[in-house]
Amino acid sequence: MIDWTKISTVLLDMDGTLLDLHFDNYFWQEYVPDRYAEKHGISLARAKEELSPRFEQTYGKLQWYCLDFWARELDLDIMAMKHEVTHLISFRPYADAFLQNIKDHGKQVIMITNAHRDSLSLKLERLPMAHYFDKLISSHDYGYPKEDQSFWRALEDDIALDKEHALFIDDNIGILDSAKTYGIAELLAIRHPDSQKGPWETGSYNAVEDFRELFISS
Rank of each mutant, 00 (worst) to 15 (best):
G143N: 09
N114S: 11
A37G: 11
Q29S: 13
T113Y: 03
P145Y: 05
D134T: 07
P145F: 04
Y65G: 06
D134V: 03
W64L: 02
A37E: 06
Q57F: 00
H87F: 08
R153F: 00
D157K: 13
L44R: 14
Q108R: 14
M129D: 05
P33C: 09
A130Y: 10
H87A: 10
V109C: 02
I137P: 00
P53L: 10
Y94V: 02
H83G: 13
S43R: 12
M79D: 12
L99S: 13
L155M: 08
F55R: 01
S90Y: 05
Y65S: 09
D134Q: 02
Y59P: 04
D148G: 01
Y36H: 02
G60K: 01
I112R: 02
T58P: 02
E38F: 00
Y59N: 10
H83A: 08
R72T: 10
Y142A: 10
I112T: 08
D75K: 11
K82L: 09
E56R: 14
A71W: 02
M79I: 14
L51R: 07
M129H: 13
A47S: 11
Y142S: 06
S138H: 06
D141V: 04
K123T: 08
S52I: 01
L120V: 15
R92F: 01
H83I: 02
L88G: 09
A37T: 07
T58I: 02
W64T: 03
L124A: 12
I89E: 06
L122V: 13
M129L: 15
A97R: 12
H87Y: 12
E38T: 10
Q57N: 04
D118V: 10
I102P: 01
Y59W: 12
A71L: 00
L88V: 11
L44H: 13
P128D: 05
E38H: 06
K61D: 05
D75H: 11
R46L: 13
S121V: 13
A45S: 14
N101Y: 04
H105N: 15
I137F: 02
W28E: 02
C66V: 00
R117H: 14
F98W: 09
R117M: 10
Q108V: 05
F151G: 02
I102V: 15
P128N: 06
A47C: 08
S43Y: 11
I110G: 03
E30G: 03
S139L: 10
L122H: 06
M81Q: 08
S150T: 13
Y36I: 01
S150Y: 09
A97N: 07
A130Q: 15
P33Q: 08
M79H: 09
Q29G: 13
G143K: 09
T58Q: 03
K123I: 09
M129V: 08
H140F: 08
L122I: 14
E125T: 11
L76T: 09
A95K: 07
W28R: 03
A115E: 07
S139F: 04
K48F: 02
A45V: 11
A130S: 15
L120C: 07
K107F: 03
D104H: 09
Q29Y: 07
R153Y: 00
L51Q: 08
E156N: 07
A45P: 04
H83P: 00
R72W: 00
